[in-house]
């Protein structure tokens, strides 16, 4: 961290793009204080910082752990979110963890792979469920094809499959452009009418193995 810039969600997309473009490992830690309101655990962001290597990350966490140990009663820290964006080896991976001063030398993986659509939109939740069931990136058309049975089952009444298809496509496009963890890459293809196809994946499906820690 060279500038005191808090990590904010709208910056997240550009961080992902950066990590993937340069094939780099980077990440951030967000330090949170005690919640200002019971229903909003993330309401008191104290500070955010980036790290650019695994050693950097360990340094930052160790400094904070030492500080919390020295001042156990009044350290003022509630919890921390750790993000890792791993673009090494040409494939993007995303990891998220929770750390609290009590945990000391351990942290808890956050399972983004079980995320739910916060707005509970009908077609978007079908798309999100399909994306989370993937193991790797697939074409956008494949996602829609796989989401169709879900849509038929939940929203099927009285509407043709074509309508569902169009609405699912629309929901997917919206999510690709708004959700930072839904990651897309475009490839040229002679077989596609538009000359390109898009591969899409939800980066939350990868947060099982913390390989970036090694």
């Amino acid at each position: 961290m060279s500038k005191g810039v808090p990590i904010e969600e709208y910056r997240f997309k550009s961080l992902l793009d950066h990590a993937s473009k340069f094939g780099a490992l980077m990440g951030g830690i967000q330090w949170y204080g005690p919640a200002l309101s019971d229903t909003l655990p993330q309401s008191n962001l104290l500070h955010g910082q980036f790290w650019h290597s695994t050693a950097d990350f360990h340094d930052s966490l160790q400094e904070m752990r030492d500080y919390c140990r020295k001042h156990p009663d009044n350290h003022g820290l509630d919890h921390a979110h750790v993000y890792a964006l791993d673009g090494r080896g040409g494939a993007m991976k995303f990891h998220a963890y929770l750390w609290t001063p009590i945990m000391g030398e351990a942290m808890q993986p956050l399972d983004y792979g079980r995320a739910v659509d916060p707005h509970n939109r009908a077609y978007s939740s079908c798309i999100l469920e399909t994306l989370l069931a993937q193991k790797k990136a697939v074409k956008t058309s494949t996602v829609v094809k796989r989401a169709l049975p879900l849509a038929l089952q939940r929203l099927g009444a009285g509407v043709s499959e074509e309508t569902h298809n169009v609405l699912l496509h629309k929901a997917l496009t919206v999510m690709m452009n708004t959700e930072s963890l839904i990651y897309t890459r475009r490839f040229d293809s002679d077989h596609s009418p538009s000359g390109q196809f898009t591969m899409v994946e939800h980066l939350g499906i990868y947060d099982k193995e913390p390989t970036w820690l090694l």
């Binding site: 966490l61 351990a106 942290m107 993986p109």
Partner: peptide, 14 residues
């Protein structure tokens, strides 16, 4: 209790 992954802070210490 959620699963915790251990961190080896000492290994990165110069």
């Amino acid at each position: 209790m959620a699963t915790l992954i251990p961190l080896d802070l000492a290994a990165f210490e110069p």
